[in-house]
Amino acid sequence: MNIFRLAGDMTHLASVLVLLLKIHTIKSCAGVSLKTQELYALVFACRYLDIFTNFVSLYNTVMKLIFLGSSFSIVWYMRYHKVVRRSYDKDQDTFRHYFLVLPCLVLALLINEKFTFKEVMWTFSLYLEAVAILPQLVLLQRTRNIDNLTGQYVFLLGAYRGLYILNWIYRYFTEPHFVHWITWISGLVQTLLYADFFYYYYQSWKNNQKLHLPA
């Protein structure tokens, strides 16, 4: 464990807690894409299949439980909670996220480190996580102005990915055999997707304006 990875995990944890806090306290999910949340729940479900069979560390297991619990409860809130669901604007959140799932699955079947069920599902979860933010970014473009909690959520998610890239660089230089091209490339693609959001987020922060993305 290195500081970049710990900071990355904490930032990732903060992003889901910010979102859960927003939804739980103000009982609203305005501006949040349910499609992105469903994709994240699927990502964690496919990635943590080995949660009970492959014990890495207590930290690892606890964090997996937190990510699974938070992502599924966010989906539950947005789908079934009688107050929260009313604030979900489904006619704006129209990204056909099923079109993301299939190509990621096919790609995982073609490009993986080991052709086993668990490994293919793990690789599928990596590719899917790389594109899972797209419905949320499209929704932000549509709704133009972003309430600062949703903005913080996307910002923290991007920061977590950026920190993970530093973690991979660190591990590459400190652990001789640590080479995971698949993880690195999909992680890089994911981080690049945030780049333009970061640009507008920084601009709005610098000019102390309300953050809005160009149409």
């Binding site: 464990m1 492959n54 560390s57 690892n60 973690n167 652990e175 055999h177 993880t183």
Partner: peptide, 10 residues
Amino acid sequence: ADVIGEHDEL
């Protein structure tokens, strides 16, 4: 301790 070979990252 990071488990060698297995996926030890979240």
